[in-house]
């Protein structure tokens, strides 16, 4: 892979603290356009926090984030977000289609209601994730994998350039995992940048082309084939980590 010249996300000196307890320290990170990147690290390494502070959900105490050279607030429309599945109440009275429609709310802005155009986009996204047949299902009646697909569809509707996903493979079945990764690879092919908080180290070389090791500090970042090695894994996870890398 060639080094990409255009930078999608530029993070400088980012420091985040929860209740003034440090979570992320002095992170410098440049994510090139068009990569499919995994963020890996042990529990409590600050992976979700990194994504949330890029998206301005958490206020950092120092540092700056730029999306295509401008502050996030000006570039919202370029960014889509898939939160952790456990972060919402799935017993909420709403249907799959309705959740996917929420992806269009950002572009609609205040007060304006979604119309036919938005509905069409939502149906297309549902089709893409293979959930069209379930569009009128109450969301609590969906399986974990189906709920994750709905979340992905909601992000797809946003039609963004950069996708942030917080553990999209957590608690999903094998079929869904395949389906999701295929969609992510398609997105990359279309020139989009996809950033995924990931847990399963075994699948990193198979799924991703770019990786960031994170444990409170940034340990390493770059192409999977160059930096996904025992040395960086040990530095990140603290113990002598061995992973068989199939390449």
């Amino acid at each position: 892979m060639t080094i990409k010249d255009k930078i999608a996300v530029q993070i400088d000196d980012l420091t985040v603290a929860y209740n003034y307890k440090p979570v992320l320290w002095d992170i410098d990170l440049a994510i090139p356009e068009g990569v499919l990147m995994a963020i890996v690290g042990p529990n409590g390494a600050g992976k979700s926090t990194l994504i949330k502070s890029i998206l301005d959900i958490i206020k950092p105490i120092a540092g700056s984030v730029q999306i295509y050279g401008k502050a996030y607030k000006k570039q919202r429309s370029l960014v889509a977000y898939v939160p952790q599945k456990g972060s919402v109440d799935w017993d909420f009275p709403t249907t799959a289609l309705d959740v996917v429609m929420m992806g269009t709310y950002g572009s609609l802005g205040w007060i304006k209601r979604p119309g036919q155009k938005q509905k069409k986009a939502a149906l297309e996204a549902l089709e893409k994730v293979g959930m069209l047949a379930f569009k009128n299902r109450q969301i609590s009646q969906l399986s974990g994998g189906q709920q994750q697909r709905i979340f992905l569809a909601r992000a797809l509707v946003q039609n963004a350039s950069i996708y942030f996903m917080d553990e999209p493979f957590q608690g999903v079945d094998a079929t869904t995992e395949k389906a999701i990764i295929n969609i992510l690879k398609e997105l990359r092919k279309a020139g989009k940048t996809v950033i995924v908080v990931h847990h399963d180290l075994q699948t990193v070389p198979e799924y991703f082309d770019w990786v960031t090791f994170l444990n409170v500090k940034k340990i390493a970042t770059g192409p999977v084939k160059d930096i996904f090695n025992d040395d960086n894994l040990t530095k990140t996870y603290g113990i002598n980590y061995k992973v068989s890398i199939q390449q």
């Binding site: 949330k52 998206l55 301005d56 959900i57 919202r76 960014v79 977000y81 939160p83 972060s87 919402v88 109440d89 909420f92 709403t94 959740v99 929420m102 709310y105 950002g106 609609l108 205040w110 007060i111 304006k112 209601r113 979604p114």
Partner: peptide, 16 residues
């Protein structure tokens, strides 16, 4: 629309 979104997923509401 906004209230429904807030009730279901507050963080996501913020990112939009």
């Amino acid at each position: 629309k906004e209230l429904k979104l807030l009730l279901f997923d507050a963080d996501y509401t913020k990112t939009l």
